[in-house]
Design a binder for these strands. Structure first.
Lengths: 195, 195
DNA sequence: ATTAGAAATGAATTTCTATTCATTCTATTC
DNA sequence: GAATAGAATGAATAGAAATTCATTTCTAAT
């Protein structure tokens, strides 16, 4: 097995274990077992437990950004773009459940040391939303008085919360497409009827 | 000092410590020190570390529900109610920063054991939102085709994400009122201009 | 003032697990 | 097929903290 393969294999295992038990409750030996390597082997590829989490986070968000940007490039209309972003984000939850769980956690971990780091890659991701909003305001489609900085957070928060619902419940009354549609519709048109 | 006081004193200390270091990185001895009691004393009031977190969560959410319901009772219009909910939720972040941090974490902790429990009280809280939506749909103010179950999550998610921003950043460009206003405005009216 | 019972203490114990490293395995080269 | 270097192993170590409990301190009733 190539070196890169084992690195990857450990990351995949770690994603699974972190996703199900959470970072702190996850044991190195759990990850090792899942990856079918010895405990010590993990330290040939990562500095320590936390390093596994960070690497995971970095690499996966980077992939996500590439994917979503490619999908958005196909589309001109900011309204459609918002929908596409929602769809992509929610798809992640279906296709990479464990990863989604890890991201959710990692983002919230309130430990001062974690607060420091984190940011960079994730900020890039969320800024894709404000880019869309901005474009829509420039072309006169979105209300100009709204602050992209708030909207991006609100939109991301809404999606993130839906993801959590998906992860926690197993019922799944709604499809991904319906959910993406409803969320983007709420943001685009609001919930009030015209007076 | 009365027994109940010490119970409370430990909870307050725990809120502070959990909020700043996170549940797992928080030490019982940190909490003891903060509460100015001996380590062992904590075990006279709580079964274990996790029990502190759960109690905290339960008691505080219960208070929050009472508060917010009282505020809502003053108001008839569902649109105003949504704003009031937002305002109250965001105020929590200002007034009880540490508590807000604990709630954020606790909600996300993905460890199967935690997933089990959690729910009850928190569900009650979020259901206040769907109650408002429902009322608005019944009285013909909100679009009837939207699903309250999704909206409540989206709305809560948006607020929760704003809270996180507040906790993480110290810049705070916007006031609480403006933010509550903007978030509820987005939900009520959407971001698109009339065609 | 005495004292029984409750409450609090914090050093000692126990448990748990991340990390290390001496040893073993594997594959490549001559 | 022996030699060598790189990779992998997993038992042993070390450190950290949750929890316990023998002892001390406080409280209030008589």
């Amino acid at each position: 097995m190539k070196k890169a393969d084992k690195h990857q294999k450990i990351l995949v295992a770690a994603t699974k274990v972190f996703g199900s038990k959470g970072f702190f409750s996850a044991r190195i030996s759990d990850i090792a077992k899942e990856a079918k390597v010895a405990d010590g082997t993990i330290y040939l590829y990562f500095h320590n437990k936390y390093d596994i989490l960070l690497t995971l986070f970095e690499e996966e968000i980077a992939k996500l950004i590439v994917d979503i940007k490619a999908a958005l490039a196909q589309e001109e209309d900011p309204r459609r773009k918002l929908y596409i972003f929602a769809l992509h984000h929610l798809k992640l939850v279906i296709e990479k459940k464990e990863l989604a769980e890890v991201l959710q956690m990692e983002l919230r971990q309130s430990s001062d040391s974690v607060k420091e780091y984190r940011i960079t890659k994730f900020v890039d991701y969320v800024n894709i939303i404000s880019g869309i909003i901005h474009q829509g305001q420039k072309s006169g489609i979105f209300r100009p008085e709204l602050k992209p900085g708030i909207i991006k957070r609100a939109f991301f928060g809404a999606l993130d919360e839906m993801s959590r619902l998906w992860i926690l419940n197993s019922d799944h009354s709604y499809t991904i497409d319906d959910t993406a549609d409803e969320i983007s519709s709420i943001f685009l048109n609001g919930i009030s009827l015209p007076a």
